[in-house]
Every structure is written in C-alpha cells, then in structure tokens.
Design a protein around this nucleic acid. Structure first.
Length: 362
DNA sequence: CTGTACGGTAAGGGTAATACATGACC
DNA sequence: CGGTCATGTATTACCCTTACCGTACA
C-alpha cells in the first residue's frame, strides 16, 4: 500500500520533471507564455534556465499563432478544428483545462483577443496556482486590459516618452520626420525587439507580413507607437516606419532588366496596378516601384528634357485652364497624359508654378 | 444582421537634395 | 580666353496624405 503510494509519487515527480511547466515557472510566466504563443527554448532542460527577465522564450513558427474561433467559411472549418485540438495539446492549455471546467467544455469559445484571454486567465489563476503549487500573483487591472504593463517594458515607455517630450516642442509642425525623431523611433523599436526577443530582421519581416499572419503582439506594437508618437498621424507613422523597416533587397538605382520587368508588369496591369504584388516580385518596396513608374518609366520614350518652347507653355496653360477649376487640385498625371507624355507630371507642375510666379511678379 | 472602427493599399500631392546650366569675376 | 566660384533652374529621389476597401468585432 505504502509502496504503491510511493511509486505513484515517483511517477508524478517523474512526469512533472518532463513537463515544461515546472514549479519554477510562476503562473505569471505561464500566462505570459501562453498569451504570447511562445515556446520554451528547446535546450532548456534545467528548470533554473527559465528566466523571466531574460525572456528565454522563443517565438513559435507563425502557423502556431492561429485563430481560436472557427471562421465558418468555405472549408476552413475542418482545418481550424484540427488546430484547436493541437492547441489543447499544449501544456498550458491542458493545465488550464484541468483548472477550469469551462475551458474543457467549450474549446471552441476559447477567447480570442488578449484582454478577453487575460480576463479568463484571471479567473483560473487561483485554481492553477493551487493545483500546481506555484506562487500566485495578483494580476493587476491594467495588466488585465493591457499585457504591456508586465514588468520590463514600462521603463522603456517612460524613457521614450521623456525624450519625446523634449523633442516635440522643437518640431514646429515639421512634415518630414527629423533625424532626432527617427533616432527615437529606432531606439523604441530596438527595445521592442529586445523585449519580444526577436531580431530586427524578424521585425522587418513582420512589418511586411500578410495581415492574417500578424500576431497580437504587433497590433499592440502599433497601438503603442500611435500613443507615444501622437504628434504624428497614424497613417504617417505607419508608412514611415514600414518604409524604414523592410527587407526588400533592391533599393536605389534601377537596372535595365528591372525596368523592363516593371514596365511589363505595369503594361499588363488593368486600371488598378497591384503595387504590393509587383514589389514582392521585384524585391523592392512597392512604393518605390510605383514612384519609378509614374516619375520615370511611364513616359520615358516620349519625354522631352529640352527647354520648354513658348508654344508648349501656352498649350500647358490652356490645358490646365480648360480642364481644372481655379480652386480645384490639378492632377498633374492627367496633364502629363494630355501632353502625350512629352513632359512628366513633375515637369508640368514645375513649369506651371514657374509661370505662375512670373505672372505674379509682373 | 448591422454599423463601425481600423488595418491596409493605391493613388494623389509634394519637397529636399542634387545635378546641371548660366553668369560674373579675376 | 580659361578657370572657378556663386547663383539660378530643372530633375531626381524620396516622402507624406487622402480616399477608399475589406475585415474584424461589438
């Protein structure tokens, strides 16, 4: 009888040694790991290796970060159910399922967004804690609504905030991001990557990854960027940071071959040109492709670089006056087209402004 | 089922930096 | 007349905003 008990205890001990969730991982850590979809480092056999502050957790393959709720869309459902099963094989999920009957009953309604999930974890934490004999902790109300307040990141936020407070008054509604601003952005992103335990390269890929593959953590990243740099608009920040952090290998001058390919792509396109697609084909930022097309390639064969003749100038003036109302924006792409592509949109615009200036001086 | 917020993209609008032309001066 | 330096003009490279669409979510 006693012997049997001892065997059982040994078995349990053995089992728990094999278990990823060891007594050395606090509930907080377990919750963190689960919510972020992180894995332990494979080499982490010794429990003392697990270090909350050093974040030795590793990012799982993207596929593991999946929706928890079936989409009820054409054929997707079967696949999603399978993935939900997979999820339940995760130690943390089993742990939570054991701890909370609600989880075991309704796998299909495992909450999806972070605040909901944390809310649920909050419910089961005491149970997990007693079950596993691990130190419990009080999840704060801010943590419930916002994962970012876990220790470690707040000081970063504060530091960035302080630098920005000093910088913003000097900006005076500057349109362009200044060097100093960019430096702060870089610093923030560096810290963010450190915190998330991902490389800058990884981060760049994330910036340009498909929507569906984006994880919650990245959503939070943007929320914090928007909050920190609130003197800039969201779209401005979004495009600026994506422009700054990308992994497209080609940049700068265009080779003849590249121009050829771009030209073909654009010629084959319908009225809407899929720049993002073309960008990935050419391994260049989509915006660069678009700009090179409309500023250079579009009219390259017909473009004149000689001095404008008085007749040309007259045609330009009539064209603009005939086609655009005085207070209406002038679409210079259209104007360029109307000139049969002999001058680029920027040439037209420049000439127009120049003539306007001359007239006002008279 | 529906309205809405929001992420994401294409198209549009623009300027700083640079290259190039011109002219003044020695 | 040739060189060089300053200044004006045109082009290039790069950047930001707006409009719109589709999806997630309350």
């Amino acid at each position: 009888m006693d012997q049997e008990d001892n065997n059982n205890i040994e078995q349990i001990q053995q089992h728990e040694e094999n278990d990823h969730i060891t007594h050395n991982e606090t509930v907080e850590e377990a919750v963190y790991r689960y919510v972020r979809g992180l894995d332990f480092p494979e080499s982490s056999t010794s429990t003392s290796d697990i270090n909350w502050d050093n974040k030795r957790y590793v990012e799982p393959p993207q596929d593991n970060i999946i929706r928890k709720i079936p989409r009820h869309e054409h054929g997707d459902e079967v696949e999603e159910v399978d993935k939900t099963e997979e999820l339940l094989n995760d130690d943390t999920d089993l742990l939570l399922r054991d701890a909370s009957p609600t989880f075991s009953k309704s796998t299909s309604i495992i909450p999806m967004n972070i605040s909901q999930r944390i809310e649920s974890f909050h419910e089961v934490l005491p149970k997990v804690s007693s079950l596993r004999n691990v130190p419990a902790f009080n999840i704060s109300s801010t943590m419930k609504s916002n994962l970012r307040n876990v220790k470690g990141f707040e000081p970063v936020m504060k530091e960035i905030r302080d630098s920005l407070d000093q910088l913003i008054p000097t900006l005076k509604n500057k349109k362009m991001f200044t060097k100093e601003e960019d430096q702060i952005i870089d610093r923030f992103i560096n810290k963010y990557c450190q915190y998330e335990n991902i490389s800058i390269n990884n981060f760049k890929n994330l910036m340009w990854s498909d929507t569906r593959k984006r994880n919650h953590s990245l959503t939070i990243f943007w929320k914090y960027v928007y909050k920190l740099f609130s003197h800039r608009s969201k779209t401005s920040l979004y495009s600026h940071i994506r422009r700054r952090y990308h992994n497209f290998s080609k940049t700068g001058n265009w080779s003849e071959n590249e121009e050829h390919r771009l030209y073909d792509f654009c010629q084959q396109s319908g009225p809407v040109i899929k720049w993002s697609q073309i960008g990935f084909e050419l391994d260049r930022m989509p915006e660069e492709c678009k700009d090179h097309w409309r500023n250079n390639l579009k009219i390259k064969s017909k473009q004149l670089k000689s001095k404008w003749t008085p007749e040309e100038e007259e045609i330009l003036v009539t064209l603009v006056k005939d086609n655009f109302e005085p207070n209406q924006n002038i679409n210079w792409d259209k104007v360029s087209e109307m000139l049969n592509g002999t001058r680029s949109r920027l040439q037209c615009r420049f000439k127009w402004k120049q003539l306007e200036k001359k007239n006002s001086e008279k």
